[in-house]
């Protein structure tokens, strides 16, 4: 137990967890509404899309560097998936068909990122900025996408709910959509692949030290390319989930989601320099930022303060992890000196 505790204290995730608990207790004490069933369900509901995005951001950060194109990939691939479904008259087909179409388009766009980044070794931030600009141009300029209704199959999928709760005291109800299951399934798959397969370990190896990974026999280029293809697919799923949850496709609502997601995973302990980052951290970081944006109203703080709080949390969180990693390096060099 003691050993477990010692290990936990060293992890960033532990501190995020502590902050979440303190914040939730504070909100509960002030308003008495935080642990109400409808608030919890609301929180889970608003976590779904950001936490799927977080998988994209995590994979990119751990293996290569920042990827900021996932919101636009999500927007464009869901648009294409919905249009194809409508045109081919697949409205009666099971919802998964539309999702598969979307994933295919998403993978294709991810492959474009992958090719440019792997072939030329450009910084991924700049490349994905460029491609997201291209995707947004294609979506809004070439296709002139406008808001549209969902095809029957997705509309039915969106109406189905996993869980409906009603707060007895306030009379406010909220529902947990089926997309929550998609998120859970994605996280389980990602966990198994990242931790139990050689390919998944390769993702961490490539990000940790490229040369060592290559000498250890990992296909560095292949892994990086694969990551961006997978990212495209995951982003497409997130985009369709968003459309399903809002019961309508809104092309302009996607852009700009990337920065908060990146902030969330960095808060969750993912290192900018690559090689370090966990799915657990992703979930905790996303939960923290969702809590801040959802529950500040419960604290009686005006919405105007929301941005200030998010900014402060990002700065403080990243400062702590930066100082920690800096201190870690110092300890290591001291140990080395002592050993020598």
């Amino acid at each position: 137990m003691n050993k477990f505790f010692k290990k936990a204290v060293k992890q960033t995730e532990f501190y995020v967890f502590l902050i979440i608990i303190v914040l939730s207790l504070v909100i509960q004490a002030r308003s008495g509404l935080f642990f109400a069933n409808n608030n919890i369900v609301d929180l889970l509901r608003s976590m779904i899309v950001p936490s799927i995005y977080a998988i994209c951001a995590l994979l990119a950060f751990v293996s290569t560097g920042p990827d900021v194109s996932f919101p636009m990939i999500a927007a464009l691939s869901s648009y294409l998936a919905l249009t194809v479904t409508n045109r081919l008259g697949l409205g009666g087909a099971p919802w998964i068909i539309t999702f598969i179409i979307g994933i295919l388009f998403g993978c294709l766009m991810g492959a474009l990122n992958g090719v440019i980044i792997v072939r030329y070794k450009f910084p991924s931030l700049i490349v994905t900025l460029g491609t997201s600009s291209i995707f947004s141009g294609i979506l809004l300029g070439a296709f002139e996408a406008e808001r549209m209704d969902l095809p029957q199959n997705l509309a039915a999928f969106g109406k189905a709910s996993l869980l409906t709760v009603k707060n007895a005291k306030t009379g406010l109800g909220s529902t947990l959509p089926m997309t929550f299951l998609i998120m859970i399934v994605l996280y389980i798959i990602a966990y198994l692949v990242l931790n139990k397969t050689i390919m998944g370990r390769g993702v961490y190896a490539v990000g940790g030290d490229e040369v060592s990974a290559e000498r250890a026999g990992f296909n560095v280029k292949g892994i990086r390319f694969g990551i961006f293809v997978v990212n495209g697919g995951v982003a497409a799923v997130a985009g369709l989930c968003y459309a399903v949850m809002s019961m309508r496709y809104l092309p302009t609502e996607y852009a700009g989601g990337e920065m908060i997601v990146i902030a969330a995973i960095i808060l969750g302990g993912t290192r900018m320099t690559g090689g370090i980052g966990t799915l657990k951290g992703c979930l905790l970081g996303t939960l923290l930022l969702t809590m801040v944006s959802n529950s500040l109203i419960l604290l009686g703080i005006s919405v105007y303060w929301q941005r200030v709080f998010i900014g402060a949390i990002i700065i403080i969180g990243t400062a702590i992890s930066a100082i920690q990693s800096h201190a870690g390096v110092k300890v290591k060099t001291r140990l080395k000196k002592e050993a020598a």
């Binding site: 920065m259 902030a263 200030v308």
Partner: peptide, 15 residues
Amino acid sequence: LRIPAMLATLGTYQL
């Protein structure tokens, strides 16, 4: 504080 520039300015932009 050695925060990576992209993140630091991401935080301050919100702030």
